[in-house]
């Protein structure tokens, strides 16, 4: 039985039993190269749910404040390993009610970076399929190309330490092999290139990268652990802490605020990165932040349900500062 069948079965059962009001999974988008979040309300409709290498959306986003419709609905949700960490981060802070949730963990072999594929073609990708570690892509004009899956994985997947959900009520199929987390420290080599720059180069790079921002706020709205919604400091005009002007200053400040506000809760799932319409590599900044937090506390956000995020705690024996 495939993972997809498991998901459909769990969804149908939960809907039939009335355990949930609706079930959130993934379904095919407007063509075979896209997967979009699916909201299933009836057991008869579970056949639209899919599981494949394109299911990049972090569905925990749809559990956070103001998202459930109607408010207080009982919700079933599919989570990959990284998604489950954001869910745990929300649960740690009691920002969502665990009793209203039914969580299906989906063991994950890595998700394809569709943006990387787009760069390979001038025309539109209409179909992506994956089998035996090969990814075949077809475009509208009839071009086809094959890639090795490792070459087109999301950055977040190449260094994944939690491929299985850390918290789930049911698991769709057998778990995938876990990396040796106790033996090996996280691999932060992806941020090394940026770290090696001089101060001046860092500033020039950040200014260049963030000047592309259009302040559409897709990154914060899609972020599962960014929960202020209509009270966001970046938008508030009373008080107006961040100017609404659209200069590089404001863009950079806004991104830094987002980064700080999710510090200790963000597992760098990369949802912000994928949502950004102008393809700003937000993921890397969040990785850097996670690296520092790991260095300071040995803490990986959202991995244990009985922990609290590090910035909500203190230890009198902390050794920071002079």
């Amino acid at each position: 039985m495939s993972r997809q069948d498991h998901i459909r079965e769990f969804a149908a059962k939960a809907l039939t039993e009335g355990r949930v009001d609706y079930f959130i999974g993934w379904k095919q988008g407007h063509n075979a190269s896209e997967v979009v979040p699916a909201f299933v309300k009836e057991a008869a409709a579970v056949d639209q749910l899919v599981w494949n290498e394109l299911c990049h959306h972090n569905l925990v986003t749809f559990l956070k404040r103001n998202m459930p419709d109607p408010a207080g609905a009982k919700i079933g949700v599919c989570v990959k390993g990284c998604d489950s960490r954001t869910l745990v981060a929300l649960l740690q802070e009691e920002l969502i009610d665990r009793d209203r949730l039914y969580v299906v963990g989906v063991p994950c072999d890595g998700i394809i970076d569709r943006r990387r594929l787009e760069k390979e073609f001038a025309d539109e990708i209409v179909a992506v399929s994956c089998s035996d570690g090969r990814v075949s892509v077809a475009t509208r004009k009839g071009n086809e190309k094959e890639f090795a899956k490792e070459e087109v994985l999301l950055d977040a997947c190449t260094r994944c330490r939690y491929p299985n959900a850390v918290y789930a009520d049911d698991v769709a199929g057998p778990p995938v092999p876990e990396p040796d987390r106790d033996g090996a420290k996280p691999d932060w080599s992806d941020v090394a290139g940026y770290e090696s720059l001089s101060d001046d180069e860092k500033q020039a790079t950040l200014e260049k990268v963030y000047s592309a921002c259009v302040r559409c706020f897709a990154c914060i709205h899609v972020c599962p652990v960014c929960v202020c919604w209509d009270k966001c400091v970046n938008r508030s005009r009373q008080p107006e802490l961040v100017e609404q002007k659209v200069g590089t200053k404001q863009k950079l400040l806004f991104q830094m605020i987002h980064m700080f506000h999710v510090a200790g809760r963000c597992p760098s799932c990369g949802a912000c990165d994928r949502a950004c319409p102008v393809e700003i590599p937000l993921y890397l900044l969040h990785r850097k932040m996670n690296k520092e937090i790991y260095d300071m506390f040995g803490f990986e956000p959202g991995t244990k349900l009985d922990e609290k995020p590090v910035f909500q705690l203190f230890d009198v024996n902390d050794r920071f500062g002079d």
């Binding site: 950055d155 290139g193 940026y194 720059l197 001089s198 180069e201 020039a204 393809e279 590599p281 890397l284």
Partner: peptide
């Protein structure tokens, strides 16, 4: 090519 490369040295930085 990779998303990360955008974070490498930008022109303008001395």
């Amino acid at each position: 090519e990779a998303g990360g490369a955008a974070f490498e040295a930008a022109p303008g930085g001395n």
